[in-house]
Amino acid sequence: MDVPLGPEESFPVGRFRVVGVAGREIGIARLPGGGIRAVRNTCPHRGAPVCQGTLGGTMLPSPRGVLDYGLEGAVLRCPWHGWEFDLESGRALFGTASKHLVTYPAAVRDGMVMVTIRDGGAS
């Protein structure tokens, strides 16, 4: 089902605001480069409030001594143990873990943020 969560302007850019939806805590963030993301506010590792982590980029796999920063705006880093997730797919980055962050399809329609929740939760 599609659930309206509020006007687009009520959600911050570059960080999450958490709202309750059908018994779940879902974090909504607008990305600095445009677009909107919705994730469940629970880290699959130890259950941390993952939306209090950092939304940004990270260092990409690279040869020794080379630093390559990328994925800006596409990564959520958990505030506890620092696990990093792809905000689009919910996957842990670069095969670091097999557990997924739960993500939900989100969009803005007529200025209203809409999130799609399936029965059973995850998209």
């Binding site: 130890r46 259950g47 941390a48 505030p79 506890w80 143990h81 620092g82």
Partner: peptide, 10 residues
């Protein structure tokens, strides 16, 4: 601290 072990989770 960042690497804390949370009761109920471990």
């Amino acid at each position: 601290h960042w690497d804390s072990d949370t009761p109920g989770r471990v």
